[in-house]
């Protein structure tokens, strides 16, 4: 972990269309090659990992809700400059409390190059529920199994390879506090972004009746926005009656993400104001 905390040179990439959306969310991506988001349940050590990677001092605390705003920082790995975004912790992407919306909107509309889902090794079941949901939205996912030291203390053995196999995305065991495993984690992130690792996210199908309804909607969505990466997830959200997704659909915001064109009126950008210190 020696090469991650360098000061970053500046060079703009205003023409990179993938970054326009992020620019609108109040994130300056000009100086960075890649954007990585940190998602996960509350209290899994996202902010700790963020601090370890960026050398910044985002406050951490052992209670759910410590991070309610988004924090950003940068680091460098293998000559690539990464922008890291620390999102508020969420139990799921389904309910619509304010902090969950911040996280959900970012993963969906911000289109980060990769999303690291930070999990607590001592309560995997609960954490994997969120991993499965994030994998519905994007296939650029790396799972970080954090708090391995705690797991050891509690006499738990976690087999990261079994997780990788089952989930279809890399799962790396780390201890954010000491930095153990972080190099491997970043390697996996780079590989996923560069396509050296092709992920095959596991999809949960639900009841046959539900599956049938989803299958009816997916082609319609794909027809409206050809090449959309997460039509299945959108179909599920539409069936669920997710107001935010419905709005994105009828305002054409979704289609625009796909064609990656600049839009002037992204209303939700205002909501995501970046507040540094808390």
């Amino acid at each position: 972990m020696t090469n991650t905390k360098t000061i970053l040179p500046t060079e703009h990439c205003e023409t990179c269309p993938a970054f326009t959306q992020l620019e609108q969310m109040g994130i300056k991506v000009g100086d960075f090659d890649r954007v990585v988001a940190l998602a996960g349940n509350p209290n899994t050590g996202k902010s700790t990992l963020f601090n370890t990677l960026t050398g910044l001092k985002q406050h951490t605390g052992n209670w759910p809700g410590k991070t309610v705003t988004r924090a950003e920082g940068g680091f460098e790995f293998n000559k690539m400059r990464y922008k890291l975004v620390d999102l508020p912790g969420t139990y799921s992407l389904l309910s619509a409390s304010q902090d969950e919306e911040v996280a959900r909107d970012f993963i969906l509309f911000g289109q980060p190059s990769c999303t690291i889902v930070v999990c607590d090794a001592t309560s995997l079941e609960r954490n994997l529920n969120l991993v499965l949901q994030v994998m519905e939205i994007t296939e650029h996912v790396v799972v970080a199994i954090n708090l391995m030291d705690e797991a050891k203390r509690k006499g738990l053995e976690v087999d990261a390879r079994s997780l990788s196999r089952d989930l279809g995305v890399p799962a790396i065991a780390i201890t954010a506090r000491t930095g153990d495993g972080i190099h491997t984690l970043l390697g996996a992130v780079a590989d996923v972004i560069e396509g050296n690792i092709v992920t095959k996210p596991l999809r949960v199908h639900g009841t046959p009746e539900f599956q049938k309804a989803v299958n009816e909607l997916v082609p319609m969505i794909e027809q409206m926005a050809p090449g959309i990466p997460n039509a299945r997830w959108l179909a599920i959200r539409l069936l669920d009656g997710d107001a935010r997704v419905q709005k994105a659909l009828s305002t054409g915001e979704l289609g625009d993400i796909v064609s990656r064109q600049q839009r002037a009126d992204v209303q939700f950008s205002a909501k995501m104001s970046v507040e540094g210190r808390q």
């Binding site: 799921s92 389904l94 090794a121 995997l124 079941e125 609960r126 954490n127 994997l128 529920n129 991993v131 499965l132 949901q133 738990l156 053995e157 976690v158 087999d159 990261a160 079994s162 997780l163 089952d166 989930l167 596991l202 949960v204 199908h205 639900g206 009841t207 009746e209 539900f210 309804a213 009816e216 909607l217 599920i236 069936l239 669920d240 009656g241």
Partner: peptide, 30 residues
């Protein structure tokens, strides 16, 4: 489509996610 689905389908979605998560976790954690 939503109106045709049985009323508890939202519960079912979450339940199937958790069931899957439970199985994966069981295989990975000793």
């Amino acid at each position: 489509l939503r109106n045709d689905l049985s009323t508890g389908f939202r519960d079912e979605i979450v339940k199937s996610l958790y069931t899957e998560a439970e199985n994966i976790a069981k295989r990975a954690v000793k």
